[in-house]
């Protein structure tokens, strides 16, 4: 579990990157709805979702190594959680649930790698999300990197001083590190608050609006919604 330096966005200038953020977010959401909503007897629906994701990944030209590196801990967690199903369920059930979860995780990782966060904020504005949520999201994203910087420095210092410790001792140390991190972030936030006050911050972040959707993108958006509903209707027929 880590944040890639500079955020999860990987710019390759591909066709997928050039798509509008609103379209990408809607398409990702549709694909997740299809994957989660697929009934047990509709493995073909998961196969279609996987094929679509595979094609999008290939078109995005994002290095497979980067995606796999981000997917590795998630995959491990999903498989471990899925093993719980084996105690009461069957192998079929385990494979089905794990595949659904993996497809959703893959979709999430791909979307975040192909969409700059600024466009996500712009898309939130266009979709009419309340301004307070947008402001907190935007500031939180910036502050997360500040907090990460503090956390990594603290961890490096800690691991240099205490390279190995008994589990209980380590838990106590991590709790103390957490406390110190909270205090440091609070101090940084206080300074940021003063800086924002000095710049006449009125409680909302300003940003450039996204351009209106082009006709082609609108048509693709409508088609995506239609295909999602159609596939699910076909699977539940």
């Amino acid at each position: 579990m880590r944040i890639p330096p500079g955020g999860p966005y990987i710019d390759t200038g591909s066709q997928v990157h050039a798509l509008d953020a609103r379209f990408k977010l809607t398409a990702a959401l549709s694909l997740m709805i299809v994957a989660i909503g697929a009934p047990t007897n509709a493995a073909w629906l998961l196969a279609i979702s996987a094929a679509l994701l595979g094609a999008s990944t290939a078109l995005s030209r994002i290095p497979a190594r980067s995606l796999l590196f981000r997917m590795a801990p998630i995959t491990g967690l999903i498989l471990i959680a899925g093993l719980g199903i084996l105690f009461e369920g069957t192998w079929d059930r385990f494979l089905f649930v794990s595949t659904k979860a993996l497809l959703c995780a893959w979709c999430g990782v791909l979307t975040s790698a192909a969409t700059p966060f600024g466009d996500v904020i712009g898309a939130m504005r266009c979709l009419g999300v309340p301004n307070t949520l947008i402001t907190i999201t935007g500031l939180g994203y910036r502050l997360a990197f500040v907090a990460l910087d503090e956390a990594l420095r603290m961890m490096s210092a800690y691991l240099c001083r205490v390279p190995s410790a008994r589990p209980l001792v380590r838990i106590r140390h991590v709790c103390r590190l957490g406390e110190a991190l909270i205090r440091r972030v609070m101090r940084r936030t206080e300074r940021m608050e003063w800086a924002l006050h000095a710049r006449a911050f009125d409680g909302s972040l300003r940003g450039l609006p996204l351009s209106p959707l082009r006709l082609r993108e609108r048509l693709i958006l409508v088609a995506t919604g239609g295909i999602t509903i159609g596939l699910l209707a076909l699977a539940y027929r």
């Binding site: 579990m1 880590r2 944040i3 307070t132 402001t135 907190i136 999201t137 935007g138 500031l139 939180g140 910036r142 502050l143 997360a144 500040v146 907090a147 990460l148 503090e150 956390a151 603290m154 961890m155 380590r170 838990i171 991590v174 590190l177 957490g178 991190l181 909270i182 972030v185 609070m186 940084r188 936030t189 940021m192 608050e193 924002l196 006050h197 911050f201 009125d202 409680g203 909302s204």
Partner: peptide, 29 residues
Amino acid sequence: QRVREPIWAAAFVALGVILPILFHLLSIG
């Protein structure tokens, strides 16, 4: 309050993202 609260809310959001990383580094998340 209207000006201050979003800033502090953002700080809590940032902590909510980073604290789990700290805990997961030592597999106790």
